[in-house]
Structure formats: C-alpha cells, structure tokens
C-alpha cells in the first residue's frame, strides 16, 4: 500500500458534540460511493486520555506511524484553559498502489476542552463511539489521574506504556489492575525475556540451580528502570521468592528478595549506557555462589506496530504474569 496518505479535514472552535458527529458523517460520505477504491477500516474505538505536551507528541508520532494499521476511530482528548469545546476531525486514506487493491482509511477526532468538560469526558465521547467494536483507553502517562473515571467503564481494556517510568506508575498500575484489564506495552516488550528465561531453565541441570540462586542482575538501557523492575518482579514472583525493599539511586536499584528456605537473593538493576536493549533490557544474570546463568538479547527487538496490534487484542499473548510481576514490584517499592 502506498505510504502517501490523502486527508480530509474539518476543524471547529466552540462547537457542540453533535456538530462533530455531523461533520464526521459528512467527511465519510464520499467514501460510501461504491466506485471508490478506498474503504474505512473499523476495528476498534481508541480513546486517548489527555497528556502533557511531551507525551502528547509521543502519542501523535505513534498514531502517525501506525498509518493504515491504526485503529478505525481514534478519539484524542486534549486539555486547554478555555471554556469551550474545540474539535478536529481527520480522515486519512492510503492510496491504493495497484489495480484491484483497496486503500484503507481511518479517522481521528481530537477534542480539546477544559477540565470541567474533561471531568465528563465519557459523555463527550459516547456519541462518537462506533457500536459493537471493542473500546480501548490509552493512558499516555500512566501515573496521571484519569480525567473521568467513567471512561474505565466504557473501555474493555486500558493501554499503557510504563517503560520510561521510574517505578511510581507501576504502583498505580497495580491498583488499576484490580478494576480494569491493563495491557502494558512495557510488559509486551519483555515477552522475549520471559521466553528466554524459561528456555534457560528448561534443562534439569539449570533448574537444579534455582533453589541456590543468590543474586539477580538486570542491565537495562537508557531510562528503562521500570522495565527492569517489572522483569525482576516477575522473576521474584515466579521463583516464589518473597519481595523485600528496593533502593533507587540515580538510575540504579538495589534490593533483596528472600528464597523459600529463608536465604537472601540480592537484586541489582543497573543502567547500561550504550545498550540497545530489547524491551529496555540488555542482559539478565542469575547467580549462585559458584555458577551463573546469563541471558542475552541476541538481536531480538519488539517493533511498535506488532506490539501495539497485540496489545489491542482482548487477551494479548503477552498478558500472563503481569499482575504477579506488578504485585512483586509494588511490594518491593512499598518496603523501600
């Protein structure tokens, strides 16, 4: 499919939501002509919660990068200080690049409102929802409050990315998992590490080391301490160790877990300055007094589009183990 998009756009200030619905229908009208080689893709409703300008840019980049693979209707909420509702509706169509092909169109509505309206965001978005499609709420900043808690009732799942967090969001996400189905892209990116860890302990010789593990070292890239914490939390939870406190200091974290026989396991998370990790992780090492098991990433990567696609499924392949990992992380952070 061609990368060259064709856009139809409408913009209004101080509008009522009914006008937005009507303008969106008007923009769609030409696409209903049977002779056109373009069709609107309808796979889900995606709400995007308001975010700071920095996170908002990340959201914009991610949505633009998804192109024809983006969800059928994206509803982006933004905050401003004026007592009015501004709206922009865009339908973006890929141009078919060969005879017999159909260009895929998707639409995006951006609603900008003040806090008093955003507190009722669920009612604002309801007229724009496509029926019978799953609805996903994307929280670009997982540690920011949700403007209208009723958005959680509207959504079947919540999409977050805790990779760049320093751990604060993980505690909040642990609370959120009690009432909502949370799909964390950071957890998805760690799928390789879970599979590689399972493979590393597949042989009886390696498994025999498990009760003697005395240390766990995680090397992470850039700002991905949160990814390191999640991975360490998962290992702690699945190995049956009791999480204890963890101290964070300038990108490092050191803590302790306790094995079932009461012996300590030292946890160490350190930044690897030049790493190009997979899911933010470069290396994982299990140590006993005499041995170690090193797990490296090889060339494994997690591409955003594939991960996004998986995260939008009702039950992503990577979902298992997340609540347990979050639980262990929350316990470590609570005790620190």
């Amino acid at each position: 499919m061609s990368a060259v998009p064709e856009r139809s756009r409408w913009r209004g200030e101080g509008v009522h939501i009914d006008e937005v619905v009507a303008e969106l229908a008007r923009l769609h009208h030409p696409l209903q002509d049977g002779g056109r080689r373009q069709a609107v893709a309808r796979t889900l409703n995606l709400f995007v919660a308001p975010a700071s300008s920095e996170a908002g840019k990340t959201v914009g980049d991610a949505l633009a990068g998804l192109g024809a693979h983006s969800p059928s209707r994206t509803l982006v909420l933004r905050r401003h200080g004026s007592d009015r509702l501004d709206a922009e509706a865009v339908i973006e169509c890929e141009l078919p690049d060969a005879a017999g092909r159909v260009g895929v169109c998707h639409d995006r509505v951006t609603l900008t409102a003040d806090d008093s309206r955003l507190e009722h965001a669920a009612s604002l978005l309801a007229p724009l929802l496509l029926s019978d499609l799953p609805t996903v709420l994307w929280l670009p900043e997982p540690d920011s409050p949700i403007p209208d808690p009723r958005l959680l009732d509207r959504a079947q799942q919540v999409l977050v990315d805790s990779t760049a967090d320093d751990g604060a969001a993980l505690r909040r996400l642990q609370e959120l998992t009690k009432s909502a189905r949370v799909h964390d892209l950071a957890w998805g990116r760690l799928e390789f590490w879970r599979a590689a860890t399972a493979a590393a302990f597949e042989s009886p010789e390696q498994r025999a080391m498990l009760p003697r593990i005395a240390g766990l070292d995680v090397r992470y890239e850039g700002e991905a301490l949160s990814a390191g914490l999640l991975l360490a939390g998962w290992v702690v939870a699945r190995a049956g160790w009791r999480p204890e406190g963890i101290e964070r200091d300038h990108g490092r974290a050191h803590g302790k877990a306790v094995r079932t026989d009461g012996s300590p396991v030292a946890l160490s998370l350190e930044r690897e300055p030049d790493a190009r990790g997979c899911g933010g992780i470069e290396k994982l090492t299990f140590r006993t007094d005499s041995d170690e098991v090193k797990i490296r990433r090889g060339a494994a990567t997690s591409r955003l589009r594939d991960l996004f696609a998986e995260a939008l499924q009702p039950t992503p392949s990577f979902a298992r183990g997340y609540p347990e990992a979050l639980g262990a992380v929350a316990a470590m952070l609570r005790d620190s």
Partner: peptide, 22 residues
C-alpha cells in the same frame, strides 16, 4: 540438590510460545 530432583521450571507458565530447543 541433584539434577534428578530438579524443581519444575516456574518460568514457563507465562510463556505462550516457548523458544525452540538450542
């Protein structure tokens, strides 16, 4: 602990698609 009584692998339960053997 001897290899013969190695514990079960606790990490496999969260892996939908295990990696192939080496």
């Amino acid at each position: 602990m001897s290899v013969g009584t190695a514990p079960a692998n606790p990490f496999t339960q969260d892996v939908k698609q295990p990696l192939p053997d080496p």
